[in-house]
Simulated assay, not measured.
Amino acid sequence: MVGAQGGRGVLLDRDGTIIVDSGYVGSVNDVVFLDGAIEAIARLNAAGVPVAVVTNQAGVARGYYELEDVELVHKHMAAEMARGGAHVDAWFSCPYHPDGTVAPFARASADRKPGPGMAIAAAGALELDLARSWVVGDSACDVGLARAVGASPLLVGSGEPAEPGVTGVASLADAVELILAELATPVAPAAASAFPDHAYGDASWFAGDYAGELTRALATVEEGRFEAAARILDAAYTRGATVFSIGNGGSASIANHFQCDHVKGVRIGTDLLTRVQSLSTNVEILSAIANDIGYDSVFEYQLQSQARAGDVVVAVSSSGRSPNIVRALEWCAANGVETIALTGFSGGPSRELATVSIHVDSLNYGVIEDSHQACMHLLAQYVRQSHMEPAAVESAVF
């Protein structure tokens, strides 16, 4: 289902957010709804906002109650909510804990908050855009989950000062008030802002925010750009054209990695014989051109000798302004060579010159380069699976 809010949804913690946290609630007799919680969920329902519950249930791993008891508690809660005109669209619980005593559940799990597993499952079930959704909970693990998937965290009932980027509220009702107010306020798509924008004293918090920024940045790629780029590459590989990759510095490493994955990776399990060459990898020719002609010509000069009409160039440039990248794209446009540009920041001239521009809206070099690396991988894997039988895709390692 896609809600009326276009992929925006709310992930709710259970104990301490919807019901009283009396410590390992494993029986319907222990369920006590917090004041206003049912009414708050009903307001989200009325606004067409998908609602999922994501709850750690280590009591199962510790042997305090059974998995079936968790399901009975959720059925009871659903019935009580229905009486108040409210409902939860999907329920997710994690019964695992590494210190558990019940063998099947005594292990670590990516589903256990702050791990992203339950949020990712909810996004798949409810077609949520996690980067535009909210996580509402009463503990640090709920904030950690929000950071892990790029969602907005709302911390319920905490008297402690909120961490940067975390909004503290008194109750679920207050959280819903903020969410509905934000949904009612038309806003333009968020422009990239500087990251980090403050000093961090804890690497774990930095890691969580970095992951959130990476998720946000990848989500800014315009719809259809991956499909357009994949079509260009697939057609080039199918007709035996050569694909050249170019880039400077960190982008050069992505250009080189592009050759690796789009030759060795794409061919596994397919009938393709891909022809890919990185023009960033040969220090002898690069330094000779740079020394004798000029660094601005290092890619254009090589393309003049090696590229032909019908070939493809993939240009990786965080700024999109590097003169040698711009000159190469201009030469391609004048000589029948299609181009794919991976850019960041404003995109520079490269964003406009390329046949297809995959632009990542970020102002952080690391985030942009990580995003470009992910784009390189996903294009290789998409083209590869497109040339495989469905059964082979299911059994293959990508």
Score class of each variant (00 low, 15 high):
Gly3Cys: 00
Ala4Phe: 11
Ala4Gly: 15
Arg8Pro: 04
Val10Leu: 11
Leu12Cys: 09
Gly16Trp: 08
Gly23Asn: 10
Tyr24Asn: 13
Tyr24Gly: 08
Val25Glu: 05
Gly36Leu: 01
Ala37Glu: 04
Ala40Leu: 07
Ala40Phe: 03
Ile41Trp: 01
Ile41His: 00
Arg43Pro: 02
Leu44Trp: 06
Ala47Trp: 04
Val49Glu: 04
Val54Ser: 08
Thr55Gln: 11
Tyr64Asp: 10
Tyr64Phe: 15
Glu66Phe: 07
Asp69Met: 05
Val70Trp: 00
Glu71Thr: 10
Glu71Asn: 06
Ala79Glu: 14
Ala79Gly: 13
Ala79His: 11
Glu80Pro: 00
Asp89Lys: 06
Ala90Thr: 07
Trp91Lys: 11
Phe92Pro: 09
His97Val: 10
Pro98His: 10
Asp99Arg: 08
Gly100His: 04
Ala103His: 14
Arg107Trp: 01
Arg107Val: 11
Ala110Lys: 14
Gly115Gln: 07
Gly115Phe: 04
Pro116Leu: 03
Met118His: 06
Met118Trp: 10
Ala125Pro: 06
Asp129Arg: 13
Leu130Ile: 11
Ala131Ser: 15
Ser133Asn: 03
Trp134Phe: 12
Trp134Ala: 12
Gly137Met: 02
Cys141Ile: 15
Ala146Tyr: 09
Ser152Gln: 14
Pro153Met: 05
Leu155Ala: 02
Leu155Lys: 03
Val156Met: 05
Gly159Tyr: 01
Pro161Asp: 14
Glu163Tyr: 04
Gly168Val: 09
Ala175Cys: 06
Ala175Lys: 04
Glu177Arg: 07
Leu178Pro: 02
Leu178Gln: 11
Ala181Lys: 08
Leu183Cys: 04
Ala184Pro: 01
Ser193Gly: 14
Phe195Ile: 03
Pro196Thr: 11
Asp197Val: 11
His198Gln: 12
Ala199Asp: 12
Ala203Asp: 08
Ala211His: 14
Gly212Lys: 05
Val221Ala: 13
Glu223Ser: 15
Arg225Asp: 09
Phe226Ile: 15
Ala228Tyr: 09
Ala230Ser: 14
Arg231Tyr: 00
Ala236Tyr: 03
Arg239Thr: 06
Arg239Trp: 05
Val243Ile: 11
Ser245Trp: 05
Gly249Ile: 10
Ser251Arg: 00
Ala252Pro: 00
Asp261Leu: 07
Lys264Gly: 12
Arg267Trp: 04
Asp271His: 09
Val276Met: 05
Ser280Leu: 01
Gly294Val: 08
Tyr301Gln: 15
Gln302Arg: 04
Leu303Cys: 02
Pro323Val: 04
Glu330Leu: 04
Glu338Met: 09
Gly347Thr: 08
Gly347Ile: 06
Gly348His: 06
Leu353Pro: 03
Leu353Gln: 08
Ile358Trp: 01
Val367Phe: 07
His372Cys: 05
Gln373Gly: 10
Met376Gln: 13
Met376Thr: 15
Tyr382Glu: 14
Arg384Thr: 02
Met388Val: 02
Met388Phe: 02
Val393Tyr: 01
